[in-house]
Each structure stands twice: as C-alpha cells, then as structure tokens.
C-alpha cells in the first residue's frame, strides 16, 4: 500500500498509545502538592526561627534544592519521578535534579570537561531565561524608580 506522509501520519498516530493522563495527572498533582506543602511548612518553620519573609523564601528554595540533589545522588529521585512525573519535575526539585543528574553522569569524562561542562546541559535554558528576565526586571525597576 502506498501512503503519502499525511495518510501515514494519521495511521501511526492512531497506532501510538497516548500517555495515561488519568493516572499521570493525579499522581503529579499529589506529589507536586506535597512538595509545595513541604515548602510551606519549611517557610513557617524558618519564619518562626526569626528569618525575614525574604530570607525565609530563599531558605526554602535552598532546602528544596538540597533535597532534590540529595535524592538524585542517592539514586532515588528517578524512581520517585517515574511515579510522579511532572509532580517532581516542575517544582524547584526538578531543577535541582536537572543539574545534579548530568553532573553525576558525565563524571567519567573528567571534573572540568565532564561534570562542569555538562551540568547545565538540561537546566541551561532555565538559567538563561531566569537571568535574562531578572536583568530585564531590574532594568525596568531601575528606570521606573529613577523616574519616580
């Protein structure tokens, strides 16, 4: 049978199973929600310990990043992510994992050319956009502040 690309595409798209969203979405919701709840609990703790609102928020980020890296190093993150999907990937724990995983993986190519070069290979875009947006925001704030 001769099929053109459009006909073949509709054939293989029908044949390819789609992700089981009925299972994936609740799992991601529960895990992502649990991580956020943990973050909130940590923030309350840090505030009670006397940290300012701004310092407490930064400390929560640090704590969750540390948790993500520790779970990755213990080779547990991937097992959790297998179940939770986007639930672990979207919060800041996913960012930590995206840096720690290549850093571990490419250790075999050396500390500089392996770990240091490759550790931003997945999270690089997040940093690029994050830093660019911060600079832009700072510039706008400075200009607006200057005008006022």
């Amino acid at each position: 049978m001769k099929l053109n690309r459009t006909e073949y595409r509709s054939l293989y798209q029908k044949a390819s199973p789609s992700s089981p969203s009925l299972r994936n979405v609740p799992a991601a919701f529960v895990t992502g929600g649990a991580i956020c709840a943990l973050g909130q609990a940590l923030k309350t703790l840090f505030l009670q310990a006397g940290l300012t609102e701004q310092s407490a928020a930064a400390a929560v980020s640090c704590a969750l990043i540390f948790l993500g890296v520790a779970l990755t190093a213990a080779r547990l993150f991937e097992k959790l992510a297998k179940w939770a999907g986007a639930g672990t990937l979207v919060p800041i724990t996913g960012f930590a994992n995206a840096i720690a995983a290549p850093a571990m993986e490419f250790k075999t190519e050396g500390f500089v050319l392996g770990t240091c070069v490759k550790m931003f290979s997945i999270a690089g875009p997040v940093l690029t956009f994050g830093i660019s947006a911060s600079v832009l925001y700072g510039l706008i704030l400075w200009l607006a502040g200057g005008a006022a």
């Binding site: 991937e78 992510a81 571990m104």
Partner: peptide, 11 residues
C-alpha cells in the same frame, strides 16, 4: 538524558 534525570518517556 542522564540516567538519574527525572524526565519521563512517552509510551
């Protein structure tokens, strides 16, 4: 991706 990366593959 690296082995320990948490991104999931489609079915």
């Amino acid at each position: 991706y690296p082995l320990e990366y948490g991104g999931q593959r489609p079915p």
